[in-house]
Structure formats: structure tokens, C-alpha cells
Design a protein around this nucleic acid. Structure first.
Lengths: 242, 242
DNA sequence: AAGTGGTCTAGACCACTCT
DNA sequence: GAGTGGTCTAGACCACTTG
């Protein structure tokens, strides 16, 4: 486990450290909610200086994988408290409110061209498709179609979907060891098909906002292609440009 | 300028350093685009260790105030670059294409509530209102209503508008010394009034994308409130979330 | 009081960029 | 080759949390 003896080419030591720790966390060595060994212990064990280890931990903390608490320790974030990527959307909900999620359908299908290209799959390769309805106070608001690559997300293809949590990304981390680190949203305008409108309780041809998301993990691999539709009149999206 | 002799209570040294450097940059000591002194020089001058100064610079870089380039130096960012609005918008133009701008109207009026609140003005205080039409290949695409605070932007209230350049922010920097450093966009969908539709060559009630922008300078002061409308069906907005 | 992460230092060496 | 930022070290001390 000593990285002094085995420097990783093309990667700084703290980056290599972060990657190694990431792998050990993903492998379940420290389950969610538990504390990592103290900095000094870890640094000795890994054969690096304290400051170098700290840079690695800061990286992981910035990625949301761990949480550092002054005076207490460094904790692995559990799937429940993960990063809500919905914080940029507003579809009528109050800030911080998380819509309830219900899986309408789950199938393994040949990915359509758009999804396959985004996910880096061969055209027609099998992928996991989810349809999800998100509601506020019992009223349906958002209709989502998600495509996830296989076999990476195969663990989601089995088991009862009724008990799934409202947020996908923490669940994806827990079940598949896939940590979403970055995403791009493309916002456009469209109209609802008859079937989509029925699910959302709106009229066929009703104007909708169409948000197409590509989510990426730490290595830059695309791990999700998603289209979200909701009533255009209730839609708000806020962005900060720097 | 020695912070060893004067520790700021309740603030780490690197945070105090960052704050002090921020103030000096905002005061114009190092204009946009110029390089700061080398780390070693700055550290000596400020009486702190190199590592401490580096932490301060990392903070400022994370805020987007400066930009660090390995082997070259640390540079003050000169506000938002080239065509920031169009970095994220696409209304049918090719990437990097800048629409031609024409000022339709310029007036000093009492700011409406939304604009006054955003700009930090008293309700009903006078502000500069611009209506601007942006076109591609002669075809009108975007209709903009801009509110700028007075007296800050008084220099724009005079002179011939026909000769104004296509991009506002560089012009704002040149004429008024106002450097836009950050902005937030709120994206929503609406319908065009009859007058708006006429200007854009669309039907009254046609669906439009409505982008409300607040632009801020280095000190965090809001220097622009803008609403942009364009055909919803040609609209795309792309965001990266990290 | 003991253990944790947070800050700060002083110095070494590496990698990148320009001349 | 000279100058820049990037990495790494080893050690000191501080601030917070818990028993």
C-alpha cells in the first residue's frame, strides 16, 4: 500500500492516493457513515506525508465522497445524505424540497442512437431504461426517461423498484459503486405526446421544458443519459456563470 | 501589509490574505489581464509563508477572480470573456457566432420593482432602460430589455447608440469602468405579447424562452438586470454542473 | 485530557513556459 | 537557463469534540 515505492506515472501522488482511497471506499472497506482512520494513521500506513494525504482527502471531500468534521473525524458519506442534483431545477416546489419518485417501468433495451452515443455504447447495445415519475404533494410534475449503461449498472436491473429512494445518485453509489461527479444539462422547449401528457395530467401537445442530462463519474465516463419533461409554465432553471 | 503583526480575529490567515488581495484587485491595483507578482515575491511582501499565500490564491482562483497558469504566472481575470451570454445560449446560431445588436430604445425611467430590487435601487428610482434586438443574418432572433443602474452607467445615457458594438460587457467596461465578473441566469418559458411578437416576426402568443439575467461586478454589486426573449423552439441552453 | 482535523511554516524538488 | 506555479515533506501549534 506504500505509494512511495510505486509512483503512478502521469498522476500526482495525492491524486493517486485519492483514487486508491476512492476504490477502497467503493469496495466497502469503510461503509457509509463510518469514520476513516485518523489522518496521521492513514498517512503512515500509506507511506506519505500528512500534507499529501490531506490534499487527497480534500479532493474526495470536494467530490462529496467523504465529509470532514473538525475534532471528530473523516466520515464516508452514506447513500442517504448524497448530493441532490435537483437543486438547479424548480418545478413549483420550494427550495430544498425533494419530489417523491416512482419507477413506472424498468427494462433492458437496445439504446437509441442519442443515448448510445452519450454513454459510449455500440449502436443497439443493451442498456437499462427507467421511466420515473416525480411528484410533489401527490401531484405529478416531472416525467423522466433514464438510460444507464450495462453491465456497469446491472445491480439496478434486479430487485423491487417500489422501495427505491427518491434520489438516484446516492442509490447508484451504494448499489453500483458509481459516483456522479459532474453533469451537463441541456434545456430546450418541446410539446408533450399524448402518452406523456396523460401521465402528467396535462393536455396532449401541452408545452413542456425538456432537460437532457449527461452525468459523468470521476473518470469522465458517462454513466447516465436522462430526459426530463415538465410543464413549461412551472419551469425555472437558475444558473450561475463565472 | 504584514499580517503576522496584525492577525485578523475569527479569520484564518489565508482567508484574511485572500480578502486583502481581493480588495486590492477590486481597487484596480492589478488591472484585468495583468499578472500578479510571483508567489515568492508576494509571500515575502505580505510576511507569510509560501504555502499560506498559495492557499489564499487557491481560494481566489476558486472564486474565479484570478487564473493560475503553470509556468506563466497568476493573472487577474478581466470579467467574463468574449461573448459570455452566447457561450450558453443557442438560438439557431453556430457556436461562437455573435448576433448583430441594434438598440431600439434608450430611456431613463423609474425602475420597475423587479429591476429595482435586483439593482439595489429605491423603488421608483431612475434607471437606464435599453431595448435591444439581436439578429442573425438579418433575421431578428432575440428581444432584450436591459436595466442599468444610475449614476453608475450614466455614460451610456449619452451619445449615438447606432455605433455601439454588438457586445455590451466590453463596452460597459470601456465606457463606465464596470467589469462584469459573475452573472446568474434564470430560465423560464412564457408567451410573447403582440408587440414583442411583431418585433421578432412571430405570432402573438407564440411560446418564448425567457432568460432573466443578473450581472455582478467584482465587488458583488448588481450592475445589470436583463430579460431576453426568443423563440422557444429554437432555444437551447447548456450548463455544466460540478 | 486525549484525540481529531485545521492552520502555518520552511525548505526541497519537479514540471511547465518563455527567451 | 531563468522564472513561474505545482508537489511533497516534516514538524509545530491551534481549535474543536468527546469522555
Amino acid at each position: 500500500m506504500n505509494l512511495l515505492a510505486d509512483p503512478v506515472p502521469g498522476l500526482s501522488r495525492y491524486a493517486a492516493l485519492a483514487s486508491a482511497l476512492h476504490a477502497r471506499i467503493a469496495a466497502g472497506e469503510w461503509p457509509g457513515g463510518t469514520a476513516l482512520p485518523a489522518e496521521a494513521v492513514l498517512a503512515t500506513e500509506l507511506g506519505v506525508a500528512l500534507g499529501t494525504l490531506r490534499r487527497a482527502l480534500e479532493l474526495l471531500a470536494a467530490q462529496g465522497l467523504i465529509e470532514r468534521r473538525h475534532g471528530r473525524g473523516t466520515f464516508v458519506r452514506s447513500g442517504l445524505g448524497g448530493a441532490p442534483m435537483l437543486r438547479f431545477f424548480r418545478f413549483g416546489e420550494r427550495a430544498g424540497e425533494v419530489p417523491a419518485s416512482r419507477i413506472l417501468a424498468r427494462q433492458v433495451l437496445a439504446a437509441p442512437a442519442d443515448a448510445a452515443r452519450a454513454l459510449g455504447l455500440e449502436a443497439g447495445a443493451p442498456a437499462l431504461r427507467l421511466r420515473r415519475l416525480r411528484s410533489l404533494g401527490g401531484a405529478p410534475r416531472l416525467l423522466e426517461e433514464l438510460w444507464l449503461p450495462l453491465p456497469l449498472c446491472a445491480a439496478l436491473a434486479e430487485g423491487e423498484t417500489a422501495a427505491w429512494p427518491d434520489l438516484l445518485y446516492p442509490f447508484l453509489a451504494e448499489r453500483c459503486g458509481v459516483h456522479v461527479a459532474r453533469a451537463t444539462d441541456d434545456i430546450a422547449f418541446a410539446t408533450l405526446t399524448a402518452a406523456q401528457a396523460r401521465t402528467l395530467g396535462l393536455a396532449s401537445g401541452h408545452p413542456c421544458a425538456l432537460v437532457t442530462r449527461r452525468a459523468f463519474d470521476l473518470t469522465g465516463r458517462c454513466v447516465e443519459w436522462r430526459q426530463t419533461r415538465g410543464d413549461a409554465q412551472a419551469f425555472h432553471y437558475t444558473v450561475t456563470i463565472t
